[in-house]
Amino acid sequence: MSVLIFIDHSEGQVKKVSLEALSYGAALAGQLGVSAEGILLGTVGMDLSTLGRFGAKKIHQAAQEGLNHLDAQVYAKIIADAVTATGATVVIFPNNFSGKAVAPRVAARLKAGLVSGAVALPDTANGFVVKKTVFSGKAFAHVALNTPLKVIALNPNSYPIREGEGSGSAEVVALSVTATAPKVKVVSATQATGEVPLTEAELVVSGGRGLKGPENWGIIEDLAKALGAATACSRPVADSGWRPHHEHVGQTGIAIAPNLYIAIGISGAIQHLAGVNRSKVIVVINKDPEAPFFKAADYGIVGDAFEVVPKMTEAVKKLKG
């Protein structure tokens, strides 16, 4: 029996969310008294045995270059077969774009109960109950998985990466697969290089309509750069084409849970809050003391963003030397 963890990767790198999933899976395996094992489809530029640092005993790898590109249908079959072959009872995915594509298919294929958007380890004292976000971050639900086989998709930034709990070195086992030809053909793919994906970012600086226009985004970018943060925006900002739509956070955009969210010139509408209120610390810069965002904030400055933000950037630079 084991907990099997899906290790997502791109461009030869294991993603941060995969390390979170490994740490989560290892902790769960400890709780259940079984072993934690990873599964990686494709090839990466690292020694996979080092993933043992995160508690994995074994890494099952199907080292075929053709698998480097995720195809939900092909992946689901391979993973479901591996679950059966390894006798895993729980499968963990990161709830990122890849996990959202594959986890539901694996669950349906194996008739396993699925909880997507998990934010904590399962409560196994009485059954198997997992806490997840619902109502776009406005609440949580405790969901019981009533099947022998279970699938959990873990939200990014919800479980800390823990090193050094396992033996340190994982056994890498070749997974032999006969991959079927994908029915979806990838014509092209673009990747914003060098940038931290918003869902994985620990620090986020976000701008709203209060910034008046795209030409003013320099102050947001400067602060983000000084902090090493990702940038985000409110919906009207993306709708007006001031910023790319993948930066749009909120109920109808991306939901994020960074350690720090700095909201600049954003009023704090309920739909915006829904996507960001799981941030650990929220800072609001707004010239209107009545802006609803202040009610959801930990720190705030009532003031003009154009004056306040450059000074924040300066202070960060000074602090970081």
């Binding site: 639900a141 969901v143 019981a144 998985l145 202040f294």
Partner: peptide, 25 residues
């Protein structure tokens, strides 16, 4: 295959700490 056992609201924020606009540092 699954059932919702219960719901929970996130804990309320303690309240915002305001810093004067002339002292972003």
């Amino acid at each position: 295959l699954t059932s919702i056992v219960s719901f929970e609201l996130p804990p309320a924020k303690a309240g915002v700490k305001l810093i004067p606009a002339d002292n972003p540092a």
